[in-house]
């Protein structure tokens, strides 16, 4: 932030170049701007909006990758509600979102609070806590994670020291989802950094004033920190919720296309992928994708609505 040097392109133009800024902007800059944007515009049109429109169309057909798609109206959408595996995948995903998002945010906030104080080697700690997020969605981490939670592997052995006998979590339907929640929590870097930035913005005077009034630690946290960083909490909540609905890589690596063990890791996206590329039911898979968009949209709308009650922006009247 401190190294920004003001750049004035107009000053750099050779003498004799066309006149005042306003006029130039109207005639030439617009086209140049669009020219520079064109790679991204083309990308969005060809690689995002085009496929999205196609997928919307396919969701109303019985497309199977080989034969010409046949229009079947809303059949795909209607069939979902009778599809046991679809219902299971919705359950699994919902349970995961409800577990993983609060746990991850709570831990991220706790870590951010610890890292916010002045201490020696703080930079090192920050890097250490952020590290796991850099290798985020990679396949290798999920493989290592699965190996750690197998019979007689690291986690099993540590728990046994405390007299807990669970066996390998990756083969146990009662623990398999929890294992993925822990994986998500471990990768708390992104929300943690944002929390940290939010915490730095809280004015010190507020704490000093509260201390003078005799407020304890918990009181200061609940009455100053939380309300002051509530926009950041909201932002993190939103991002994590949307991301959690779309978790795929770790689930696919741990549970495969069938959501092993016993369908407990059959996430929505995993089932969608299996339907499309395993069973070649592309029409159905497309319909599932739009249903997911609808579901995430509804949840997001709900979060925005609820935010009115608990998110405080500075400059706003409480």
């Amino acid at each position: 932030m401190a190294t920004v040097t003001p750049v004035r392109p107009v000053d750099a133009t050779p003498p004799g170049a066309p006149g005042p800024r306003g006029a130039r902007r109207r005639s030439g800059d617009g086209i140049t701007g669009y020219f520079f944007l064109s790679p991204w515009m083309l990308g969005i049109l060809l690689l995002t909006l085009g496929p999205m429109a196609t997928s919307l169309y396919l969701s109303f057909t019985d497309y199977d990758l080989f034969d010409t798609p046949r229009w079947i109206g809303l059949d795909n959408y209607a069939r979902m509600f009778q599809d046991q595996r679809w219902l299971r995948s919705v359950q699994v995903t919902a349970l995961y979102v409800v577990l993983a998002v609060p746990v991850k945010l709570a831990v991220a906030l706790a870590v951010a609070l610890l890292l916010n104080s002045e201490r020696k080697g703080q930079g090192l700690y920050r890097a250490a806590f952020y590290g796991p997020s850099l290798i985020g969605g990679s396949v290798s981490v999920a493989i290592v994670w699965k190996a750690m939670f197998s019979d007689d592997a690291a986690v099993d052995q540590v728990l046994r020291v405390f007299g807990v006998h669970t066996g390998g979590w990756s083969g146990n339907p009662d623990f398999s989802l929890l294992m993925l929640v822990l994986l998500a929590t471990w990768q708390l870097g992104a929300p943690m950094v944002i929390f940290l930035a939010g915490l730095k913005q809280v004015p010190r005077e507020l704490y000093e004033a509260a201390e003078v009034d005799g407020a304890g630690r918990w009181r200061r946290f609940a009455s100053i920190t939380l309300p002051m960083i509530s926009p950041v909490v909201f932002f993190n909540l939103l991002m994590e919720t949307i991301n959690s609905f779309q978790v795929f890589t770790s689930a696919y690596v741990v549970g495969g296309p069938n959501g092993q063990p016993a369908g407990t890791t059959l996430f929505y996206t995993v089932y969608l992928f299996d339907r499309g590329f395993g069973d070649y039911r592309m029409g159905y898979a497309s319909a599932m994708a739009w249903m997911l968009l609808l579901g995430v949209g509804l949840v997001t709308a709900f979060l925005f609505r609820s935010a009115r009650g608990w998110v405080h922006y500075s400059g706003e009247k409480a």
């Binding site: 197998s150 019979d151 390998g168 083969g171 092993q260 063990p261």
Partner: peptide, 9 residues
């Protein structure tokens, strides 16, 4: 047991 087989897949 099934849980043993699943883990080593």
């Amino acid at each position: 047991p099934v849980e043993k087989g699943v883990q080593i897949k």
